[in-house]
Simulated assay, not measured.
Amino acid sequence: MADQNTQADNAPSFNMQRVYLKDLSLEMPNAPSIFLEQEAPAVEVSINIGGQALAETVFESTVTVTVTTRIKDKVLYLVEATQAAIFEMVNIPAEQIDPLMGIVCPTMLYPYLRSNIADAITRTSLPPLHLAEVNFQALYEQRIAQAAQEAGAATEDSGLILPPGVTRQ
């Protein structure tokens, strides 16, 4: 019986404790004149993820999306939102924390963020913008590959500063 309790106490546990909208900003700097434009808007979306340890087994994960929509050279609207959550990770090996924070947590948060952005845009009297699905595993792998490449480039650096346009041979 004591062995069963010890095994249960050491079992890995991963739980979302709380999800919340940490920040939301919506700007329509060219309203109402922009409503007279007939062209379809161009949409630019950027996504950033972040996180921090709050305690030994408690972490905050964030996903921030910035949406800039333009018609010609005028901004129709600019939305920036940060969705966050508090996660508890107990008995998770240290090498698995980063993938959880970089893949699993953002994947869980993103649907909340998509909904909040669509709702905010709908409140402007414009049609909602439904953000596309995001493969956070692919983004995580890109970030790891880029960090490895930058680390490799740093070790290959000879210390010479080359003028713009000149390449190393």
Rank of each mutant, 00 (worst) to 15 (best):
A118L: 12
G51N: 03
A118Y: 03
S158N: 14
T62C: 04
I103H: 11
V79W: 04
I161K: 03
L162F: 04
A145N: 11
Q52C: 05
N5T: 12
P164F: 08
A40W: 08
L139F: 12
E133F: 08
N10W: 05
L76C: 01
R143Q: 15
P93V: 04
M108V: 14
M28C: 11
V65H: 00
S13C: 12
Q52H: 08
S125I: 11
E37V: 12
A154G: 04
Q169S: 12
T69W: 01
A42P: 07
A132G: 09
V43G: 08
P29M: 01
A154M: 02
P127R: 02
C105D: 01
L129G: 02
G102Q: 02
N48V: 13
Q149D: 08
N116K: 04
S13W: 07
S33N: 09
A132Y: 02
D157I: 00
G152Q: 07
G102W: 05
A81F: 01
F136C: 08
Q146G: 09
M1F: 14
V45M: 02
I103S: 11
G102S: 10
N30I: 04
Y140R: 02
P128A: 10
L100T: 13
M16P: 05
N30M: 06
L139G: 15
L24M: 15
N116G: 11
I121D: 00
A55T: 10
E156N: 08
D73S: 08
